[in-house]
């Protein structure tokens, strides 16, 4: 029973990471851009959702606002700043997008104040449900799993079945050539960036309702999202999904199982400290192992 619950937790955590990593890997794959400010877009989604939900009393309007605000912020940033970074090397991109983190964080603090915001789940989605087998599980976490799966399916359809998807794949393969074929690259890039931003915003709003909506909430998730895309293979949506689920499962099950395992041959308090230390290293060990066997990541095309 405990194990079943932890597996669901791992699944839910993985889906949340997927929402973050999908946008990040899309932007990296198509434009070759390292965007550290992706976590800020996640924060913008959460703040937009909390603010609109507080104004209107409706979580659903807040959710819509989070998508709109993050996409708008993404498009704006792409046109104002990011566009100038494509020809530059990765170090310049890291520096510039790190500066964006500072601007977004302090800007948000300036507008919304020093204290975390309140964001509550709608009654229809709150509370726990009893699953077959008698396991009690929070309904909202099941919703996150469903949303993650729906987004994965939607992205797959978008990439494989639509004209925009063809252009995105073409942009990944050879950006000069699709420019020469008359595709408006600048517009394509803005659209892809806004799409990635909207996914981050959605993740921020969903996660913000069960965590805290506060300045700096995006950065810890961003680091994990990078681990996910390195494991999955940079630029691959499928890789992002598999990588996210792997990281989510490894992290959750590691934290649940390892301290107990250590306690079999160690003093309880030592087992706790060293067990949780090893558990928190586990995803990085996983990343190192994957890189050792497949340096381009599980589904990465380029080495």
């Amino acid at each position: 029973m405990l194990l079943a619950e932890q597996v669901l937790n791992g699944l839910q955590y993985g889906m949340m990471l997927f929402l973050m990593a999908a946008g990040l890997t899309l932007v990296f794959g198509v434009m070759g851009l390292i965007n550290l400010a992706h976590g800020s877009l996640y924060m913008i989604g959460a703040f937009a959702c909390a603010t609109v939900a507080a104004w209107t009393g409706s979580f659903w309007l807040g959710l819509a606002a989070s998508l709109a605000a993050a996409a708008a912020a993404g498009a704006l940033v792409e046109m104002a700043v990011i566009r100038r970074l494509y020809p530059r090397d990765h170090l310049d991109q890291v520096l510039a997008t790190f500066a964006l983190i500072l601007v977004f964080s302090e800007g948000t603090r300036w507008i919304f104040g020093d204290f975390p915001l309140y964001l509550k789940l709608p009654p229809a989605l709150s509370g726990a449900v009893t699953l077959p087998g008698g396991l009690q599980y929070p309904l909202f976490r099941l919703v996150i799993i469903a949303v993650g799966a729906a987004v994965a399916l939607g992205l797959w359809l978008l990439i494989t079945r639509t004209r925009l998807g063809i252009r995105i794949r073409a942009g990944e393969a050879d950006r000069e050539m699709i420019g020469a074929l008359g595709v408006d690259i600048a517009r394509l890039y803005t659209i892809v960036f806004a799409l990635g931003a909207a996914l981050a915003g959605l993740a921020g709003a969903l996660v913000g309702s069960i965590q805290s909506v506060q300045v700096g909430m995006g950065e810890p998730v961003l680091i994990l999202a990078f681990v996910v895309i390195v494991i999955g293979g940079i630029g691959s949506i499928k890789g992002a999904l598999v990588g996210a689920l792997l990281v989510g499962m490894t992290d959750t099950l590691g934290k649940a199982v390892i301290p107990g395992l250590f306690a079999r041959f160690m003093e309880a308090s030592d087992a706790n400290t060293s067990g949780s230390a090893v558990a928190s290293m586990l995803i990085y060990i996983l990343m190192a192992a994957v890189l050792l066997v497949r340096p381009q990541g599980l589904f990465g095309a380029r080495a």
């Binding site: 932890q6 965590q211 909430m217 301290p259 706790n272």
Partner: peptide, 18 residues
Amino acid sequence: AEVYTQVGQTDFAAEIAQ
């Protein structure tokens, strides 16, 4: 049970299950 969480941790699903 004596459980240490990570500093800055924001998801407690695993601990709540415990």
